[in-house]
């Protein structure tokens, strides 16, 4: 089997994952999209491992690592999502904006530090 088939499939998978991360609002679906991207990478690793006839099978070993790490990451991610849901009653990514910089109203007393000199 030519290497181009698994590569195309993994590219499709990765694209779907990217779309999901960028466009979905539900945090759980965003996590799933991240899994899709990781699995696309895994597919690439295995395919090229076979295609290159690597005697040490580095690609397959690395794939196992990625699967383990992805499992741990999903566990952590779901825990965070649960915690967020408990506090905010929502998992809508668009509405979770606590990271935004708070824009203060300009203070008339000290305009841009003038008068301090």
């Amino acid at each position: 089997m030519h290497v181009v088939y698994p590569v195309v499939v993994s590219a499709l998978l990765f694209s779907i994952g990217v779309y999901g991360v960028l466009a979905r609002r539900n945090a759980i679906l965003v996590l799933m999209s991240v899994e899709l991207m990781l699995n696309a990478v895994n597919l690439n690793l295995v395919a090229f491992d076979v295609w290159l006839r690597d005697r040490l099978h580095g690609g397959q070993v690395l794939t196992l690592f990625v699967i383990v790490i992805a499992a741990a990451e999903v566990g952590l991610g779901l825990a965070i999502v649960l915690a967020v849901f408990r506090t905010r009653r929502t998992v809508d990514v668009d509405r979770l904006r606590a990271l935004a910089e708070v824009v203060r109203a300009p203070d008339p007393g000290r305009p841009d530090g003038e008068g301090a000199s």
Binding site: V21, L22, A23, V93, L96, R97, L99, A100, E101, V103
Partner: peptide
């Protein structure tokens, strides 16, 4: 620059991509 920091993580990732 501050306008971009609106707290939407997806926007950041879009910029990254």
């Amino acid at each position: 620059v501050r306008l971009a920091q609106n707290g939407n993580a997806q926007l950041y990732v879009t910029g990254l991509l």
